[in-house]
């Protein structure tokens, strides 16, 4: 009985958002210049965030899976932290680090004249911060379960560490990397709290789909629902993409 209540509780809001969606005006709403800009910006930022997550996340995962050093548990905790940290707090933390008067931010500004808050780069940074853990954890798990012997074997055949990684390790972790990247991407494109806290809200620069939906709700709820539908579609797409990993569990 409680199970049914639980299932209904989870299913009902999704069902009602689909039901209340302005289907007839959907095309028109989503094609408006403002929304197109928002969608494009969201896609741009979330893809960059995913790429950055992979770029630094894979080496980090490697370190966690293969390294042996003091403070490894601490480092893993640090990596997981953004997953459980309230996004607004994450945004605040980013301000203290990369904000104009933040530790890194001041240095960046004074040395390179670079300021991250309120820029598209800032949005990407905020999204990367919250999305990267998903990728790191997926890849780390895969690295742990792959046979180290393959890498040793490749090395004895004359392969340097980069060749070993590219031709042996990477193919072995590819499925996990893909699902991790998909999760990270979904997290990035749906990110709200850290983004609005750190990067603010400016159409065309930092206003991504969730921010646009939040502000549209006060002015034009139908547009908010139309935007939400995009994110619902993304989530369903990710779920379908990962169905082999999640939905099939004997």
């Amino acid at each position: 009985m409680l199970a049914l209540v639980g299932a209904a509780f989870l299913a009902l809001p999704i069902a009602t958002i689909l039901w209340r969606a302005p289907w007839s005006r959907l095309g028109e709403l989503l094609a408006s210049e403002e929304l197109v800009t928002t969608l494009r910006l969201s896609l741009f930022c979330s893809l960059w965030a995913t790429a950055l997550s992979a770029l630094v996340g894979i080496p980090l995962a490697w370190l966690l899976a293969r390294g042996s050093f003091r403070g490894k548990r601490f480092l893993r905790g640090l990596v997981i932290l953004p997953v459980v940290l309230p996004p607004v707090i994450a945004g605040l933390a980013l301000i203290t680090a990369f904000g104009r008067s933040g530790v890194m931010g001041r240095w960046l500004f004074e040395t390179f004249d670079v300021s991250l808050p309120f820029t598209t780069a800032g949005t990407i940074l905020a999204e990367t911060f919250v999305a990267m853990p998903f990728l790191v954890l997926a890849v780390e798990g895969a690295l742990r379960s792959t046979e180290r012997g393959y890498e040793d074997a490749a090395a004895t055949l004359g392969a340097g560490s980069w060749t070993v990684f590219r031709r042996v390790t990477l193919p072995a972790i590819a499925p996990a990397l893909l699902s991790g990247a998909l999760l990270a991407w979904a997290r990035a494109i749906g990110e709200f709290g850290a983004t609005i806290t750190f990067a603010g809200n400016l159409p065309g620069a930092t206003r991504t789909i969730p921010l646009a939906a939040f502000f549209a709700l006060q002015r034009e709820p139908e547009a908010a629902i139309a935007l939400s539908l995009v994110l619902v579609a993304v989530s369903l797409g990710v779920l379908i993409g990962l169905r082999d990993r999640w939905l099939v569990r004997a």
Partner: peptide, 20 residues
């Protein structure tokens, strides 16, 4: 020298052929 610089070949007990 790392394994890749030694020119020493190894045949492992369980083969360790690259599965992909």
């Amino acid at each position: 020298l790392g394994p890749h610089e030694r020119n020493v070949g190894v045949v492992f007990q369980d083969g360790l052929l690259f599965p992909h």
